[in-house]
Amino acid sequence: MRSKLTIVALMLVTTFIGFGIIIPVLPQAVSDLDPERANLHTGFMLALYSLVSFLLSPVWGRLSGRVGRRPVIMIGVLGFCASFLLFGLAVDNLALMYVSRLLGGLFSGAVTSCIVAYVADITTNEQRTKGMAVVGMSIGLGFTFGPFVGGELSQISLAAPFYAAAGLALLTFIAGWLKLAESLTPERRAAIAVQPRTSRWTAFQGSLKNLYVLAFFVTFSLAILEATMQLYGMHRFDATPRNVGYMFFFCGLVGALIQGGVVRRRVKQGQETAYIAAGLVISAAGFFLLLTAHSVVAATVYLCIFGIGNSLIRPCVTSLITQKTTVEQGVASGLSSSMDSLGRIVGPLLGSVLLGAYAQLPFLVSGALSLAALGLLARFRSADRAQAKAEA
């Protein structure tokens, strides 16, 4: 199991480095072409990516159960490569930027949802939280180095980060092709193939409904942050893409350390909800503190506080869903990825509108949502206990 986890962790790191590269660069690239509507274009591009991912993640999840996780993951990584290459060629063409984001969304679900299902395949319930912590840590490391690399390469040109992301995705594809083993046996795939087609929403049942909505809230607030931080920083303290790259670098580094050092080592089965609650409170504190930021240094510190909270929440929620679900892991992971995408559809759009109305509104709303999610967590715990008693 350890060698398989190492391989998928490396794939996630390199994939999300490519994804994170665009965070500090996209707002600047759009601003150069249409400065008056830069916030709207940024929001629409991020939302388009996530809308396509939302629609197709369950399709990829079902397909991976029938043909295997490995080929679907490989297709997704190669598609990522093509989307980044197109964006690099399109930095002076707004329409092609939109096409590139559409392609990225098309293939993103094939990577994220199928790797989560892959990890669920190779871990037991007792190992699940540790496995998902590795997933979260890998994504966190990708987001740590991605914005940093994007900010640095933007000094060469705005296209350079996207060419680098395409090259990295291609290397990831080659490494995965050579090293990634299939997690589903032919017998298991055959058994899944004869099962009736299952809607993603069959996983949205019982106590887990609350966790899926909580996951949406968490991603929604994160997407608002990603869509508005660069423009907010430009407005408040003249932040450059390089500044924002460093800010997300430190945020991601702290998050990866928390997931690798706290979640993976400390969180035991049954303790997940306590860590989720702590994460929600810490995330809310980070959002509210960002309202007071008047320098890059202060904003970086507050962003790191948010990162600590977020890194406690995500792997624990994913672990609980994969432990408690009664449907096939590909379907459950597909719905998780869809809720993630749904948050990334609505978040950038609303964030752009809120930013246009009042610069601090995105962070006020995100902090309030983090606290509101505590109610969903309480409902999950209550429903889960009642369900356990009924089954006893």
Rank of each mutant, 00 (worst) to 15 (best):
A120D: 07
G105L: 02
I115L: 14
T124P: 07
L102W: 06
V77F: 00
N93V: 09
L78F: 15
E182K: 07
A181Q: 15
D92H: 14
L170R: 07
Q155H: 13
F80Y: 15
L94P: 01
E182V: 06
P186K: 07
G79F: 08
E182N: 04
L103M: 15
G176E: 02
L178G: 00
S138Y: 12
G150H: 10
I122A: 05
I75C: 12
A165H: 00
E152A: 14
Y118F: 14
P186G: 06
E187M: 10
F145V: 14
F173C: 04
A190P: 08
V135Q: 09
L94T: 05
D121C: 03
L94V: 06
F84W: 09
T129C: 05
L103R: 06
R101G: 08
G88A: 11
E152H: 11
A169N: 07
L89S: 03
W177K: 12
L89Q: 12
A169E: 01
G140Y: 13
L171C: 12
Y118P: 01
A175R: 09
S157E: 10
I122S: 04
G109M: 03
K130T: 09
P186D: 04
S108P: 04
M132R: 05
G151K: 01
F84G: 01
F107M: 09
A120P: 04
V134Q: 08
L180D: 05
F107V: 08
V77I: 15
Y118E: 00
E182G: 08
C81P: 08
G105N: 01
A95V: 12
G176S: 08
I122F: 07
G150P: 10
F173G: 04
L96Q: 01
A164E: 05
N93W: 12
M132A: 07
A169Q: 01
I156G: 00
S100Y: 04
S100D: 06
V135L: 11
E126M: 09
L103F: 13
F143V: 10
L103P: 03
V116F: 13
